[in-house]
Nucleic acid binder design. Structure first.
Length: 272
DNA sequence: CACGAGACCTGTTCGC
DNA sequence: TGCGAACAGGTCTCGT
């Protein structure tokens, strides 16, 4: 679930408050519970719990698919993996069986990081750059140009689909939005990245930004119980639409496996 | 270095 | 209905 638009939606909900939950900003952490300590990458689980206590939330950011919670004296970084979600809930709510890291807040609410599949991770760092510097550019960064994007693809002979999933190339695109961007750009997912000329990389650059912006506007894509509230599912044109007609040319959407990931495309209007 | 396969996990859905 | 297989939003590590 959590690709850039879903993580951005969660960031905004934490920042502004959502439904009856108050904003996270300004709140102080009373305690941290770790129902599954394996979620903590750094420092040790005990040390993370000790250091979190008493810190206040200053700001909430995002870089690629990473959620960044800036505190008084450190930065808590969460990666939601495949099935993670983060919610603010009343202390009186029944604890989720999939809660992996819980921040109890002074004044009666708690932040719950849930993750059934346990692919999610948490770090408490002095400098978030240590972890995030490996990431490629933000696709919605105003400073990223079509030329800059083309430069990121240089020297890549692999198929464009897995190259888009490489977070060092561009940060935040996952399986859904890679397939959707390639369909809108009319590019076949198996096209080698380095044979795309200026025209087609320019088109792909624009469709990536268009798809991500549109998905953020609709609060991301929700398939099931894991992540709620997103409305982009109904606007997907190829992802999980195998056998259904292409909305552009009516040809049946096909599914193949590319670099281990299910890949959906229109064999008629996406060319190599 | 670039690339692909396998591993890491649990829950749901599909086919027999 | 029951049961195993396939599949799922991601990323790391390893061998080539």
């Amino acid at each position: 679930m959590p690709e850039l638009p879903e993580v951005e939606t969660i960031r905004r909900r934490l920042q502004c408050g959502h439904q009856n939950a108050p904003p996270l900003q300004g709140r102080t952490i009373a305690a941290c519970r770790l129902p599954w300590p394996g979620i903590v990458q750094a420092p040790s689980p005990r040390s993370l719990q000790r250091r979190l206590r008493g810190q206040a939330v200053v700001d909430i950011g995002r870089r690629g698919k990473y959620l960044q919670i800036d505190l008084d004296r450190a930065c808590l970084i969460l990666h939601l993996g495949m099935s993670g979600s983060v919610v603010i809930e009343p202390s009186s709510a029944a604890p989720s069986p999939h809660a992996r890291l819980v921040l109890q807040l002074r004044g009666g609410h708690r932040l719950s990081f849930r993750d059934p599949r346990k692919f999610g991770r948490a770090w408490l760092l002095d400098d978030p750059g240590d972890l995030l510097k490996r990431l490629g550019p933000e696709p919605l960064d105003p400073h990223l140009t079509a030329i800059g994007f083309r430069g990121q693809l240089a020297g890549r002979r692999a198929a464009i689909k897995p190259v888009l999933l490489d977070q060092k190339v561009i940060a935040g695109i996952g399986n859904i939005y890679a397939d959707e961007s390639l369909h809108r750009a009319a590019i076949h997912p198996l096209t080698p990245a380095d044979v795309l000329g200026g025209d087609r990389t320019g088109r792909l650059y624009r469709t990536i930004r268009q798809v991500l912006r549109e998905a953020i506007r609709h609060c991301g894509t929700s398939f099931d119980y894991v992540y709620g509230g997103g409305e982009f599912l109904s606007r997907l044109r190829v992802y999980r639409r195998t056998g259904q007609p292409c909305l552009r040319c009516r040809t049946k959407i096909e599914r193949v496996v590319v670099a281990g990931r299910g890949t959906h495309f229109c064999p008629c209007c996406q060319t190599t």
